[in-house]
Design a protein around this nucleic acid. Structure first.
Length: 221
DNA sequence: GCGTGATCATGA
DNA sequence: TCATGATCACGC
């Protein structure tokens, strides 16, 4: 177990110290067993990095490092350094959203400060041999936040008006909404077209790979 | 079921 | 080839 970093610079220092290190080596230090593949261990890499950086484990809907206001996001990249997947941010609220604004939203808080940690994600590389990349600490620029806010407002308006079932992953320029559930039979409450309660598939907010790719390209020193 | 950590697998 | 929709594991 590690202590939580006391400052952002300390967190960044820890992240830099594991850059270039293989998952196998990091797993050994954390006393974790390396899975053959990630088919049944999709969150394994994230957990491994959380351990090394001193993030408090748990499923609370808050930033990974609430004391210093930073969210940790691992991001699988290919040989070209570009993201292989979209990035899950948080669950999309489908009820109780009256009065909710971008400024007070959970997603805005999570994205206000992010420690991006690229990791080798090519499936042909054995998990134990994959390595951690160099970290990037980021906060959205005015322009980036406007893009995020515009998508968020458009999507939340649809949800508020009972149009959650009309939302597809094609909606949103940089921020999209996709299923986030154990399976397609999962149900949660939402608003129907006439304002009545309905049951629908739980959804989550995801950042498009093109957007995270742009972030890495733009800010990587 | 919810929210955390995400990647998988298939159709376009 | 690539993004969408589906899925996996865990703690509670």
């Amino acid at each position: 177990m590690k202590t939580t970093p006391a400052s952002e610079s300390e967190l960044l220092e820890r992240a830099r110290s594991i850059a270039g290190v293989s998952f196998g080596e990091l797993a050994e230090q954390a006393n974790m067993k390396v899975p053959e593949n990630l088919k049944r261990d999709k969150g394994w890499v994230g957990q491994l990095l959380e351990w090394h950086l001193g993030a408090a484990a748990g499923s609370k809907p808050v930033q990974d490092f609430p004391e210093i206001g930073v969210e940790l996001k691992s991001i699988p990249v290919g040989y070209n350094g570009k993201p292989l997947e979209s990035t899950f941010v948080c669950v999309a609220p489908l009820t109780g959203i009256t009065g909710l604004t971008w400024e007070t939203s959970h997603i805005r808080n999570k994205l206000s400060r992010v420690l991006w940690l690229p990791v080798e994600g090519e499936r042909e590389i054995p998990v134990a041999e994959r390595r951690v990349g160099s970290p990037l600490i980021w906060s959205p620029s005015e322009e980036e936040e406007t893009l995020l806010r515009n998508d968020w407002e458009e999507l939340m308006d649809l949800i508020a008006l009972g149009g959650v079932n009309q939302i597809t992953a094609r909606s949103g320029e940089v921020l999209q909404i996709r299923p986030k559930a154990a399976n397609s039979r999962a149900k949660t409450e939402a608003y129907g077209a006439s304002g009545q309660p309905i049951k629908t598939l739980p959804r989550g907010f995801y950042l498009r790979a093109k957007f995270t790719s742009y972030i890495l390209d733009t800010y990587f020193a």
